[in-house]
Nucleic acid binder design. Structure first.
Length: 415
DNA sequence: TCTGGGGTCCTAGGACCC
DNA sequence: TCTGGGGTCCTAGGACCC
């Protein structure tokens, strides 16, 4: 197998930079201490992407804008344009499809491409990778890293080696020289918590992890230990998956509210607007859900979740919201609320909607209402219809979701 | 004006069944 | 009536990814 991993360098920032240049700007954000960041007045102020000059000032993705500005006074902060990002992502995907029908969209800015069968047509993998890298730069205006190997894990690790605008191979024979000297935190699936735990066991590099006894790792990390040992040794047999297989497991939306919510009514209004969005997405995908979960983050940033399995699969906004309301009343301690979320999981396409004698509403009427609202919203925009409870509430009638494009699932932490 | 939003997977403990 | 014990389902929380 020959697998490519294609990864846009500082995606959000590069895309914004390319867009500005194309529209006659004379600055290139990539050459300035600049970041893409959320709106601080809405309490969304974190770093989403950073330029290399910003990185050199010590700025980290995910940190607050306050911290970032402290490290780098005069930092240029640009708001995210998710529509632009979706378009750039799509353009790259289309270009990649010219080289193989087997392309997996791993995230908005990362793809895996199975080059195995393409080799007869396009020849040497490294040469083709350079062609792709150059074409993306010339035709789309942004740079990528491409990692090449015999499986997805190694291709992905290879792509991380040196940035930006690079092609790297990381075949099994190169693991010892290229991957093992790296700090263990650089390994895919080793996050902050695991890195700390590994360090306590005196495991500092990927090589030290690889040479450890797998049963020792299993003792400390359970099934995760086996996975870590395999990854450190470059072992991975997952396939490049096209389309959305396996099916998506859940659909959720959440939001940080720009002010702390102390009032039950107000919290429920936010939850309704989130449920509205979740319901819309469920119906668009023709999915029904069997478990509803709400999540609450309070002003102390303490998180809590509460969930319930339904008696019948459901996709109607009203049906879902009834459960959401109950869950909220059972879970809320009264602490000021910063963030609320609604998620529906255990999805199915089987609407074995047997009529329940205890239904408090008419399911059929409800489905018709949802369908009508969905249609109008699709044609005229989401704001065309607003439930009577929202006007003058200061709360958006439908919210959640960053990108409009909902056609491909983003399968994270799963190769 | 401190710390987003979208996901998946694993584990532990309790309920419940035979 | 002093202690079984395996299996499954459900829920909450925490790890990871981008």
């Amino acid at each position: 197998m020959i697998i490519f991993h294609i990864d846009v360098n500082s995606a959000y920032l590069s895309w914004q930079a390319a867009y500005e240049l194309e529209n006659g700007s004379n600055r290139d954000l990539r050459t300035l201490p600049a970041i893409i960041g959320g709106d601080q007045t809405k309490r969304h102020g974190i770093v989403l992407a950073k330029s290399i000059p910003a990185k050199k000032q010590g700025i980290i993705t995910g940190e607050s804008l306050l911290e970032a500005r402290l490290k780098c006074p005069g930092l240029l902060v640009i708001a995210p344009n998710y529509q632009l990002f979706a378009q750039c992502s799509e353009a790259m995907y289309e270009l990649l499809l010219e080289y193989s029908p087997h392309v997996q969209r791993y995230s908005v800015d990362e793809c895996f491409l199975d080059y195995t069968a393409s080799q007869r047509l396009f020849g040497d993998p490294v040469e083709t990778a350079h062609t792709i890298r150059n074409r993306i730069k010339e035709e789309l205006g942004f740079t990528v890293n491409i990692g090449i190997s015999s499986n997805k894990l190694l291709a992905k690790m290879g792509g991380e080696l040196k940035k930006p605008d690079q092609v790297h191979t990381l075949f099994p024979a190169e693991i010892a020289a290229k991957m093992w000297p790296l700090p263990v935190g650089d390994l895919f699936m080793v996050g902050r918590a695991t890195q700390k735990k590994l360090q306590r066991l005196n495991i500092q590099t990927i090589g030290e992890l690889a040479k450890n006894d797998p049963s020792f790792l299993r003792l400390h990390f359970k099934s995760y230990g086996t996975l870590l040992w395999q990854y450190a040794n470059g072992i991975d047999d997952s396939l490049v998956r096209e389309s959305n297989f396996p099916a998506q497991k859940g659909i959720g939306n959440s939001t940080t509210i720009s002010f702390d919510v102390n009032d039950r009514k107000e919290a429920l209004l936010v939850l309704l607007s989130l449920t509205e969005k979740v319901g819309l997405r469920m119906r668009r995908k023709k999915a029904l859900g069997q478990v509803v979960t709400i999540s609450i983050k309070n002003f102390h940033l303490e998180k809590l979740s509460h969930q319930r399995r339904l008696t019948h699969p459901c996709q109607s906004t009203r049906g879902l919201y009834e459960v959401v309301e109950t869950l909220f009343d059972e879970a809320w301690t009264g602490a000021p609320i910063r963030h609320l979320g609604v998620r529906v999981s255990d999805l199915t396409d089987q609407p074995f909607e047997q009529l329940s004698l205890f239904d408090t509403y008419d399911r059929e009427k409800d489905a018709t209402l949802d369908a009508t609202m969905d249609k109008l919203r699709k044609r005229y925009g989401e704001k065309i219809l607003i439930r009577g409870c929202f006007p003058h509430s200061g709360i958006k009638s439908i919210q959640g979701g960053v990108a409009e494009n909902d056609d491909y699932p983003i399968m994270t932490s799963l190769l």
